[in-house]
Design a protein around this nucleic acid. Structure first.
Lengths: 248, 248
DNA sequence: GCCGAGGTTATGTATATACATATTGAAACG
DNA sequence: CGTTTCAATATGTATATACATAACCTCGGC
């Protein structure tokens, strides 16, 4: 939101030159005016078109390149890229937020908590090398009276020692961790499963009913922190992911 | 498989100053050395630390701000941001690619094709105003001998007129559209459902078996282009989404 | 003690300049 | 004719500089 005035008389809000170049070019690409493979004008041509310095044009083009809309080749110029794969941004909110967004009262329940040396399965899930101690948690999240999600979580105590002293009666492990541990990477796996008897009981649904499972593994500065599996009854939950080409 | 490349010590390739500043600062944030809320050094201090111009520092910090790692406030400085919600990048590939990545032969089959004025349901799915013509397609994608995915698609013929002349016997609508229509936005909905009789027959599974459904709506320059629903048998498919703090 | 005016400060944007680097196309050479 | 060399070119990165803008602080008037 910047305030340098553009010379154009068409009266929109004041855009910085930088942003004007960015949106002009994305426009032309996304509208199809410049098809994939098309060579977009050289920096010095855009410099003339927008009556600005090459630095400004360069910054805008570099940003488009980083966003994946164009590809730049030395000596040859810049070219509109062919889309290769759809990439969408999936926002994964705290469950409390999701429930409250539905207008329902949220309740959290800790079902079980065990501290133990990591089993082979724990080590697979967390991608741990050593058999250090882990904390295994089982929880339920309610929307109104109905169970909304079932949570199975492993916390690597070598990475988050203070979790050993927390009972997780009042606060859910998700928010507790977020407030304490800076995440640096995460991997999500999303799939459909049939509810086994344990999950069916926990979510108050029929065994064999379809469920959406979201698993997340989190690292902080190379150390595995936590693995969590959320299971939602099919009717209760839809994940939404959006893609819009970034404009900076 | 660490997803974080830290460039410690004298290590490998020469990094540009810009990138060195970027990764240094992300390091310190992600490792927790600089906690959320911490004020990171002023531009002029970093200028001194790295012995470079303010422009270089500014570019790096602006990028970190755009990536959401820090927040910049005029006159006050730059601060490490508290993570608000997990955002992950979900890559949605062409089905042929996914099948071939599994090492299985890919086959495509067009099941049905109807051209019609859009029904009320079509208009809801496509977010259309008028009752213009649409093309409704039903297809199957095979991995080896087994059905891998079932596809139900609507194409807005007002936006993609030439689709009316394409039979889609040889080429799947996904790649056909991608090659022709520049996408500008897309929305994905992901959920678990129980297979109805039709889907069960198409995927050769039991009715009631859990399936993963991915629906995608695509726009091009404000015009709805297509709505597609992919249904995968539970065992056949897992979506993977990654989050790594962007380093530019 | 309240409140507004104005200065200070850090960031935001833009310019002109310089040199590095990768790549291409053509000239020079064996 | 094929290969090497070299200059031209477009991008990549960095510098010094300038001025705009928002926000905070202090000071002074009442």
């Amino acid at each position: 939101m910047s305030m340098i005035q553009t010379m154009d008389a068409d009266g929109g809000e004041p855009l910085s030159l930088h942003q004007r170049i960015l949106s002009d070019i994305s426009e032309r690409i996304l509208s199809g005016a410049w098809a994939p493979g098309h060579r977009i004008p050289f920096e010095h041509e855009l410099t003339a078109e927008y009556k600005c310095s090459r630095m400004t044009v360069n910054k805008a083009l570099s940003q488009l390149a980083k966003a994946g809309l164009i590809e730049r080749r030395r000596r040859s110029g810049s070219f509109v890229r062919r889309p290769q794969s759809q990439a969408a941004v999936l926002e994964i909110h705290d469950i409390r937020i999701e429930v409250e967004a539905l207008g329902l009262p949220y309740r959290y329940e800790r079902v079980a908590r065990h501290k133990r040396r990591s089993s082979a399965e724990d080590r697979t899930l967390l991608e741990l090398d050593s058999n250090g101690p882990v904390l295994a948690l089982e929880c339920r999240h309610f929307a109104g009276k109905r169970p909304f999600a079932h949570e199975q979580r492993l916390i690597n105590l070598a990475a988050v020692a203070e979790a050993a002293n927390e009972e997780f009666f009042a606060v859910a492990p998700g928010p507790w961790l977020i407030a304490r541990v800076p995440w640096s990477a995460a991997e999500h796996r999303i799939r459909a499963v049939a509810a086994d008897r344990h999950i069916a009981a926990a979510l108050d649904i029929e065994a064999g009913a379809p469920c959406l499972v979201v698993e997340r593994r989190t690292w902080s500065a190379e150390h595995p922190v936590t693995h969590v599996r959320f299971t939602y009854a099919a009717e209760s939950h839809t994940l939404v992911a959006r893609f819009t080409p970034s404009q900076g």
